[in-house]
Amino acid sequence: MKTLRAELHVHTVLSPCAELEMLPPLIVQTALDQGIHWIAITDHNATANIAAVQKAALGTPLTIIPGMELQTREEVHNLCLFDTLEQAELFQNWVNQHLPDLENQPDYFGEQLVVDEAGDFIRREPRLLITSADLSIEQACQKVHQLDGVFIPAHVNRKAFGLLANLGLIPEDLNADALEISRHLKPSQALQQFPQLKSFPLIQSGDVHRLEEFIGVNQFNVEAPTIAELRKALQHQDGRSHRILSLTT
């Protein structure tokens, strides 16, 4: 069994709100410098930079799993995590059918850049990514599970795009694998403020939009950094486990 620190919510320059420093080699280097060995790339409604980060991590002890931070109809953000690029691309195709055909306004929202493993410019993504797909949170969760992924509503405590602010309570029939809390509060505070969180495993993320935002406080005991192991660790099954380390900053 391995003990791995994970950061499961990392943006790249494809997300208009991410800093221009969120380039594959810098993401890989920063994670490694901080002793983080497992990250998920989760751009807003998009997956086009994942392969580049995976290539940048080749030959290093860092595992990159594909993901997306999907914004559903209720304006709730959700982490959708997968094992393979193929799964992520199938998911992307489905999401694309439900995204509005709007153009990004870089001056207002920020640039959406697709880059290679060296961080060099390939193209601009013209479609507006930071908007809601016309899908309910339940539909999204179901689709992620069909594709054998893990579904985690993001920063549920946050006022903007958080599940609890927008939907008031955790939907009864939402089959989420875990809930994510933001970096701004301790898990104990989150449970105190929102007692409903007790019925789900919790993870905590840096929601990394700039390099200094890696926190890597999710500590997993798993055989390997895979979705199946992640699921077991969240449920504390078969000797796998997960805990949130306390933030020292």
């Binding site: 209720e74 949170i137 602010a165 927008n166 939907l167 008031g168 939907p171 009864e172």
Partner: peptide, 24 residues
């Protein structure tokens, strides 16, 4: 359209106008 605000702000017996159609 933010259900947390409705829970905190709407008076009992109100009419509530929203474009949120989620089951909650």
């Amino acid at each position: 359209d933010l259900l947390s605000c409705v829970m905190a702000g709407a008076a009992h017996g109100s009419i509530w106008v929203t474009l949120q159609a989620h089951g909650n």
